[in-house]
């Protein structure tokens, strides 16, 4: 199954490695034509401002926005989750309104405040170590959005149909459960 990984900037290589390890065929997306026949799209971590600038420059913003709003499979992590949200604060910036969420960027502080945490018991991925790098925080979860994992009571992994978003980095480290679950969902 071909899975597009947006490769304008950021942690696309780690996603591609993890997807390949799970038997998917990752396609790095840098031009509109690259979206051609992919079955799902990953929006990786990185700098959301840099990604938006690159998307607009390369004529990718409209097709990627349309993709994410079409209920086709999409998975945004960290900066990718920011792109999928409805409302973005700190500072405000445009987003794709693909998932009924509001997020706050760099909500935990600088790199010195980056951290790893085990998700709260009772979620879909027990014992998962979530890696937060200058992470955003989900400050509002819409009605149709299901929370799959929390840390300290706050939603960190959510889904609405085949659209998933994580404020942490499931592509880093060796635990591939989140990617595997998303792939199973969309195949």
């Amino acid at each position: 199954m071909k899975i597009g990984v947006l490769a304008v900037q950021g942690g696309f290589a780690a996603h591609a490695r993890m997807l390949a390890g799970l038997g998917a065929d990752p396609i790095l997306v840098r031009r509109p034509a690259d979206l051609g026949d992919v079955a799902g799209l990953v929006l990786p971590g990185g700098e959301s401002t840099a990604m938006l600038t690159g998307l607009a420059r390369d004529g990718l913003e409209a097709p990627v926005r349309a993709w994410t709003r079409s209920r086709r499979p999409v998975f945004g992590t960290c900066a990718g989750a920011i792109l999928l949200a409805c409302g973005v604060a700190h500072p405000a910036q445009r987003s794709f309104t693909a998932l009924d969420l509001d997020v706050e960027r760099n909500a935990y502080g600088t790199q010195l405040d980056s951290f790893t945490a085990v998700v709260d018991p009772g979620g879909a991925f027990p014992g998962l170590h979530a890696i937060f790098i200058r992470a955003p925080r989900i400050v509002r979860v819409g009605d149709g959005v299901e929370v799959l994992a929390r840390v300290a009571g706050e939603a960190v992994l959510v889904r609405s149909g085949a659209a998933w978003a994580a404020t942490f980095h499931p592509e880093l480290g060796d635990d591939a459960r989140v990617h595997r679950a998303w792939l199973r969902e969309i195949s």
């Binding site: 950021g10 942690g11 780690a14 890696i131 480290g173």
Partner: peptide, 18 residues
């Protein structure tokens, strides 16, 4: 080792950028 990994992870997020 955990702290070192976090530091490297930020570097990972800068890839493909300037």
């Amino acid at each position: 080792a955990e702290a070192q990994k976090l530091k490297v992870h930020l570097a990972e997020m800068l890839k493909g950028g300037v």
